[in-house]
Each structure stands twice: as C-alpha cells, then as structure tokens.
Design a protein around this nucleic acid. Structure first.
Lengths: 224, 224
DNA sequence: AAATATTTTGAAAGGACGATGAAAAATGCC
DNA sequence: GGCATTTTTCATCGTCCTTTCAAAATATTT
C-alpha cells in the first residue's frame, strides 16, 4: 500500500487527510513543517507527499526544492488562495498537483489517487513555463501574456481568470465555480461580474477570444 | 443506531423525513439552514446528513464544503431544480447521493440505507469524463456532445435531457418524470413540451436519434 | 376500414440569457 | 490625499431558446 507523507502545521488538516487516506487503505506519516519533512524523506521513501506551503521553520516550497535534490517523490501542494498559488507556478518547482484550501478531502484523495496512478500532473501544460495556443502565449513565470508576440496588458483579474480557464481547459465552468476559484469562496457578489471580466478578457485576447466558449445556461470554458 | 442530521428550511420536509427515519429506527436531528448544520456538526458527529441545497443564511452546497473541512460524514443532497443537479455532478463536491425534490420518503430512506452501508456514489458512470455509444460521444466535464467526432450544437435543455436519458439508459421515463427531473418540480407546463424537446434532440443527434425510443402511452427511453 | 388515441412536426410568441457599455465603487500608487 | 487603474454593479439590447398550440402523421382499437 502506498505511503503518504502529510506535511502541514495544522494538526486538524493533517488529521482530516490522514483519516481519509487511511480509510482508503494508504499508510500515512506526518510532519509539522518543511524541516521535519525533509528529514523524514531522507530516512524513508514515500510514494507521495501532500505539502502545505505556509509553515513555520521551513515553508513547503523550500522543502520541496530540498527534497527534490535527491528524490523524485510526487508532490501535491496545499495552498491558500491567492499569492502562494501564483508562486507555485511562478517558481516552477514542478509539483504534480495543487489543491486550494479550503479543500474537500474527497477531492484531495481523488487527486492523490490520480497522481499515484499516472505519476504526472492532471494537465502537464501548467507545469511548463510557457503555455501557448497558436499565437496566444501565457508566460506563467512572468505572469505575462503575449498575443502574436505582442505583450497584452491584462489586469490581474483578467490574468487569474485566463489562467484558471486554461488550467481547466475543456471543462465546463459555471459562474459560481469561477467566482469561487478565481475570486475566492468569500466573494459574495453578483454572478454577472464574471460576464464582465470575460468580456474584458476577450477583448484583451483579440482574435484568440475564440478560445473562450460560452456555454449558455451554464457558464464558460476554454476550448483549444 | 445511526444518527441522521436533516437540514432543510421547510419544516414540512424535515418532519416527513424525520418521521420515516425514526420509524426505521434512526435517531434524527434537525437544522434549518446550512449555518446551523455546520455548527451542529462541529459539536456532534452524525452518521449521515440529508441536506437541502436552497436555504437561507448558508446554502447546502457551501455548508457541505464547510463541514467537509473537518468531517467525513456522508451527505445526501436534496436538490430542486435542474441546475443544481448539474452542479453536483459537474463539480463533484463529493456528495454521496442526491435526491431530487419532490422525493418519495421511501426512496430517500432506501438511499440513506444504501449510503450508510457502502458509503460511495450510486452510479459511477456519471463521474466518467466521456460516455459514448457508437459515434455518439458525451463529454460530461466539457458539457459537449460530438457526433462521429463533430461537435453537436445542443441547447442547454437538449443537453440536460440527453444527459438524463443516458444516465437512466434502458429505463422507461414518463413525461412527468422527465419534467420533474430535467425541468424541475416547480415547472408547471405542458407535457407536450417534452415531445418538442425530444424532437429537437433527435434532430440534433442525426442518425443516433435511434437511441431515443418512444414508448407509446408511456414516455421515452434511451436504448443503446 | 374507420374511429380514436397518441406522437411528431412546424411555426410563432414570449421569455430567458448573455454581451455590452457606462457609471459607481474600490483599490493601489505617487 | 488625490489620481489612475481596476473591479463591480447595473440596465439595455439583441439573440437564442423554450414553450405553446394546432395540424399532420402514425399507431392502436373497434
């Protein structure tokens, strides 16, 4: 049975993950911070690591870097919404998946299973520094978008929205889902806000607006 | 004896469920809205939660998310209209079953028993990404239908109808049942509306219209 | 074969939904 | 603090979708 190393400073989180994972038959081990995780990985091999980012002593990001010097253990990152999320991609540490807090344990387990099964991210393109669709290029490292080589001036929200759409390309996304994931679960605003941002994003993308498909009665999706 | 938490803003609904459940020997507790449910779950462990979606203060959808941060409790969702139904599957918040209102208490109890016994979703096929019958392919995550590889332009209702038919393939479905499940229990319109949508769906499916069988004096079914 | 029941089809009205533009509110920057 | 930019809200418009209804077609019964 696969062994999972759970790294988070909150005991609560560790417990939830542990409970679910053991319920599914996995073995688990816990670490409270990045330092501890690094040491544990030195002594033992794990099949997968679930790692929080914000932790005392050594953050998850640095811990993964350290561990990756010697091992290739797949990693799923846990991140709070917003900045850290960007960092993950920005510094390209090559994690296999990431889950945004607060997460559903069921979803996390599904992702763990998926990673263990195929050993790669759900969508490899997000790990790359640059993602491109025809003349539309998204430079994740620099958080920059170019259209036929010309830099597009996306506002932060436009970029976040585009990035989320791309990361979930081909998947139907409701306005609610988008608000929750891009704006945050604590956003209590109008659904139509999404429409407006889609509008602006489309106008920013020029001819490549074609990738953003409206699903009437449903929401939107990125289709390339 | 298992403890059931019943969450619905309508007292009537709670009473019906409660009565049936207690008749079967279950213990019950009630909450009027998501907020209350979340608080109750913090204080106590339930074996299963029956949760409405549309509620004041905190909707069932968000409540489940919140509860799932800390607990493992299986959930059966009560949903009213077609949309939420989609949401449940489309975004996989990981509920264990769902029942569409208005439901038969007997059926609900049967599902409660089933969930308590095995603790997993009833029909795994709906979680699959693609369902196909010969050249007819339904991409559930992308909410897209292709016919011999060519995308079909289904309207929302056409898609919902097809999805429901497919999900219940081989099962005879009356117009009333279809209206109830696809349109929602709050639809008070003509039965013949179904006919028209079947007509349009058939025309959208081209040669694969053959899968949609008319059951004279009864309704329709998907037969593959 | 005629009568009856039921479904299919076409057309048209009304409604729902998304795109859009403009203005207000919020945010960040100097 | 004030300015510029970004985000959000809101109302309007046009389009697409849904629904209804009636006539035609098909199946079933007598």
């Amino acid at each position: 049975m696969p062994k999972i190393l759970i790294v988070d400073d909150e005991k609560m989180i560790r417990n939830v993950v542990k409970e679910y994972a053991e319920f599914e038959g996995y073995e688990t081990a816990e670490a409270e911070n990045g330092m501890e995780a690094v040491e544990m990985c030195r002594k033992e091999d794990y099949d997968i690591i679930v790692m929080d980012i914000m932790m005392p002593r050594l953050d998850g990001y640095s811990a993964v870097k350290e561990i990756r010097k010697t091992k290739h253990t797949p990693v799923i990152m846990l991140s709070a919404r917003g900045e850290e999320y960007d960092k993950l991609f920005g510094f390209e540490i090559g994690v296999d998946d990431y889950v945004v807090k607060p997460f559903s344990p069921k979803e996390l387990l599904a992702r763990i299973k998926a990673v263990l099964k195929r050993g790669s991210a759900p969508d490899d393109s997000v790990k790359m520094e640059k993602i491109s669709f025809e003349g539309l290029e998204i430079n994740v490292t620099g958080r920059e978008v170019t259209i036929d080589g010309v830099p597009a001036q996306l506002t932060p929200k436009e970029y976040d929205l585009l990035f989320y759409l791309v990361k979930n390309k081909g998947i139907a996304l409701s306005r609610e889902k988008l608000l929750e994931e891009v704006w945050g679960y604590d956003f209590y605003g109008d659904d139509r806000t999404v429409d407006t941002h889609i509008k602006m994003l489309r106008s920013s993308l020029g001819e490549y607006r074609k990738f953003i498909v409206t699903l009437r009665g449903m929401g939107y999706k990125f289709d390339a």
